[in-house]
Design a binder for these strands. Structure first.
Lengths: 144, 144
DNA sequence: ATAAAAAATGAGAATAATTCTCATTTATTC
DNA sequence: GAATAAATGAGAATTATTCTCATTTTTTAT
């Protein structure tokens, strides 16, 4: 597992206990967590206001991805590798969120389409996000 | 323009002024609106609590699509045609949200990928959403 | 290693978005 | 058109997030 102190050092921000705890809680999980799940994992070790501040700090140094689940709750995940481009799969039964990688053919076709859209709307497109919604049938630990 | 009363009739819900006003405000726009933009368009003609209630009513009869913009504000749009599958393009300069259609090749490749993901994670995938983020360079009315 | 300066924290107040409550009004049914 | 059912408005309640400020921790410069 990555070293949380080193991550903070690498990004030239000061090394504090709350930041270390938040990063470690996120590192322990392979998949994204809602803010309240994170809060529960941290018990009372980090104040609520500090948690939100730390999350904003991590966003500023670009190692935190933030989005919302279908219930509009805020979800966060650490982004440590530069090449970790991925998408998300949501289970509407248990709420689990799974990181997924799309195949090369898909990403290539998407790139082509993005170029078309850029021309059509005179946009410069910098990022994209794909979300898949469904139900896990048996894999997911929370579902029967 | 579609008739708001007919839309309500078709979906077997009672025809009330607030519902008509909300639907008409949404019909006037081609592109999605944030809840506050909608509130402003409606002036004081619909109470805040009623607006939220009407939006929930429209969701229940499946003619409202709700999502969040990159600032996490709630965005809504009417979905009237069954075949109106589309995605969204967000401008980070002016906040404008544009409906986009992806080409057939893209949707076909995506379907193939979805089947692969369904097998891999033993999921049944029912829906998906693609969001593109960027900057409009000159088309967008709010940007210079 | 230490003192001074800068930055971060905790606790709770403030704010913003959304839902809830309930007395009144409006729509539907017969 | 009267009786019943449903929806509304106003504001209170709730929830998620940000802000304030006195205290503590971290960093910087000696």
């Amino acid at each position: 597992m990555k070293d949380s102190k080193q991550i903070l050092l690498d990004h030239k921000v000061s090394i504090t206990n709350p930041r270390i705890l938040v990063i470690e809680a996120l590192l322990e999980n392979n998949n994204p967590l809602t803010v309240d799940e994170l809060q529960i994992k941290l018990k009372k070790k980090v104040a609520k206001s500090t948690l939100y501040r730390v999350l904003n700090d991590l966003k500023k140094i670009n190692i935190l991805n933030e989005f919302t689940n279908p219930e509009n709750a805020t979800v966060v995940e650490l982004l440590l590798e530069d090449d970790s481009h991925h998408h998300h799969l949501f289970c509407s039964d248990c709420g689990e969120i799974i990181d997924i990688q799309m195949g090369d053919e898909f990403e290539k076709t998407l790139s082509k389409e993005i170029k078309r859209i850029e021309k059509k709307f005179n946009f410069s497109i910098e990022d994209h996000r794909l979300e898949l919604f469904g139900k896990c049938t048996d894999l997911c630990k929370n579902c029967s």
